[in-house]
């Protein structure tokens, strides 16, 4: 009696045929499909839409939003929300413009911006964790605080004329094929890569998911809930400040009415990217795709020419609705 039993050896084709992505990747895959579909539809409807430079401009015009969405992803994954990011962007552009006007070194100015943003985020995190203030309310205070500080520095728009800043803003990197991109895009994509690595590969990242999944359980497991809950707001504050610097490079000015409502775009991008708003599930890559989807809507409207800019907001709202409802139906089925 030979013990050899013919084990059916699945061919490569069988594996491909029966492969279904893990459930947790489904939302990201859906967003990716949406992005490809929208881009394809644009390519069919409008001439020159599929030109790689259009895609590169998409990254360029949304680099600050990508960075904001990365920070927001951390906060939402941990089960919180950060309403202050738009105001922190405005504050960052203002601090950069003002300090440069006062003759500070551009590097010192950048460091100041990043430190202020991180400090503000940390402060909100401390309020949220140690004093049990709802994230919504604590970051609302942050929104008012940052906007108020911006107005206090100046109510007028201050142009950024520093040589290092303008050089950075206009320096383009030539890619093979005659295409070009800028350093802001590189910074934004680097942020995405670092954030993805932190979330997937470090203890901190795993604790973020654990806290978002169930904070009480995470606490009972002995995870460092306090460090993570304060940490995610510090990261979001840092990302908002970095996004503010990129926005300052994009507009070359500091103004107290910059980035009004940008926190909504960031939240929308994260949700469209498939991150669960109750926390615990989602990926940074999804948020990147979410920003790209938002950007594509805008590109669509600018290519079309007959559509008005307000359709952007309506379409974003509709997409948000679809994703929120689908999320709700999916989570309901599981419970």
């Amino acid at each position: 009696m030979s013990a050899t039993i013919a084990v059916p050896n699945p061919s490569v084709w069988d594996r491909v045929r029966t492969y279904s992505p893990s459930r947790r990747y489904l939302p990201v895959v859906a967003t990716f499909a949406l992005f490809i579909g929208m881009f394809g539809a644009g390519g069919i409807r409008y001439e020159g839409f599929t030109d790689p430079q259009v895609f590169l401009s998409l990254l360029l015009d949304n680099s600050f939003l990508i960075v904001l969405a990365v920070g927001m992803t951390f906060v939402i994954l941990s089960g919180g929300i950060d309403l202050s990011v738009g105001s922190v962007v405005a504050l960052s552009t203002m601090i950069a413009a003002k300090t440069l006007e006062m003759g500070w070194s551009p590097y010192l100015s950048m460091v100041t911006v990043l430190v202020v943003g991180t400090l503000l985020g940390t402060l909100m995190g401390l309020l949220i964790h140690y004093l049990d203030i709802q994230p919504f309310i604590a970051t609302l205070a942050g929104l008012f605080l940052a906007r108020g500080l911006t107005y206090l520095i100046s109510t007028e728009s201050i142009p950024i004329t520093d040589a290092t800043f303008t050089e950075l803003a206009f320096a383009s990197i030539t890619l093979p094929g005659g295409y070009y991109t800028t350093w802001t895009v590189v910074v934004a994509l680097a942020t995405v890569v670092v954030a993805a690595a932190v979330l997937a590969r470090t203890r901190f990242g795993r604790t973020v998911y654990a806290v978002g999944g169930n904070e009480a359980s995470a606490m009972l497991m002995g995870l460092r809930v306090a460090a993570v809950k304060v940490g995610v707001y510090a990261i979001s504050g840092f990302c908002a400040a970095l996004g503010g610097l990129l926005f300052g490079l994009y507009t070359l000015s500091g103004y107290s009415l910059h980035a009004v409502g940008m926190e909504l775009d960031a939240i929308a991008a994260v949700v469209i990217g498939g991150t669960l708003l109750t926390g615990g599930r989602g990926f940074v890559v999804g948020s990147l795709l979410g920003v790209l989807v938002l950007g594509t809507i805008q590109t669509f409207i600018s290519f079309d020419g007959t559509l008005n800019s307000w359709w952007t907001r309506i379409v974003i709202g509709a997409l948000l609705l679809v994703f929120v409802v689908v999320q709700r139906l999916m989570t309901r089925r599981q419970t």
Binding site: G317, L320, V324
Partner: peptide, 30 residues
């Protein structure tokens, strides 16, 4: 959205918060 679909209020009303100003612009034609 809140009472029938059971979506968290903050998220459910976020949809209209994002889209609402676009709708208002649509009505006034910008």
């Amino acid at each position: 959205l809140v009472s029938v679909l059971g979506i968290q209020p903050i998220i459910a009303t976020l949809v209209l918060m994002v889209a609402g100003r676009g709708l208002a612009m649509l009505i006034t034609d910008g």
